[in-house]
C-alpha cells in the first residue's frame, strides 16, 4: 500500500520533472551534520519521524535520534529562520512532490522560536 503510494508519487514526481517543473532548490544550511546519510533521509525521514512521534508522545521516550524539532533547528533557513516559505527546507521539496504536510498546523516551523508579544488569552 505504502510502497504503491510511493511508487505513484515517484512516477508523478518524475512526470512533473519531465514536464519541466523546476527542481526544488534546496539549501542545506549545515552540510554533513545530519543523523543519517542524505539518501536514507530522503527515503525514510517520514517513517523515522512518525515512529519517533508516537514513541515520544504515547510512551514518553525523549532524546530520540530523529526529532522534528531537531530537523528544524538544523535545517531552518538562516535567512528566514523557518523550514517553511519559499526555499524553506521542508516546503520546497514537499511542494515539488505535492505531498501535503500538516505538521505545521501544530508544530512551530521556526528554529529557536520565542513568542515576544503579550502573553495570555485576553477576553
Amino acid at each position: 500500500m505504502k510502497a504503491a503510494a510511493l511508487a505513484l508519487l515517484l512516477a508523478l514526481a518524475s512526470a512533473a520533472a519531465l514536464a519541466g517543473a523546476p527542481k526544488p532548490a534546496l539549501k542545506i544550511e549545515n552540510p554533513g551534520q545530519c543523523i543519517a546519510p542524505t539518501e536514507e533521509m530522503r527515503k525514510n525521514h517520514m517513517e523515522m519521524l512518525k515512529h519517533q512521534r508516537d514513541r515520544t508522545l504515547r510512551q514518553g521516550i525523549r532524546g530520540e535520534k530523529a526529532s522534528l524539532n531537531g530537523c528544524i533547528e538544523c535545517h531552518a533557513s538562516k535567512a528566514t529562520g523557518s523550514v517553511l516559505g519559499k526555499g524553506g527546507f521542508c516546503q520546497e521539496c514537499h511542494a515539488y512532490a505535492a505531498v501535503k504536510l500538516d505538521c505545521w498546523d501544530c508544530h512551530q516551523p521556526k528554529a529557536g522560536f520565542k513568542h515576544a508579544g503579550a502573553v495570555g488569552v485576553k477576553p
Binding site: 524539532n69 528544524i72 498546523d105 501544530c106 508544530h107 512551530q108 521556526k110 529557536g112 522560536f113 513568542h115 508579544g117
Partner: peptide
C-alpha cells in the same frame, strides 16, 4: 506562535 516544545493547533 506555538512554543516549539508544545505543539498545538487548529481543529484539535
Amino acid at each position: 506562535a506555538q512554543n516549539p516544545e508544545v505543539p498545538r493547533g487548529l481543529g484539535c
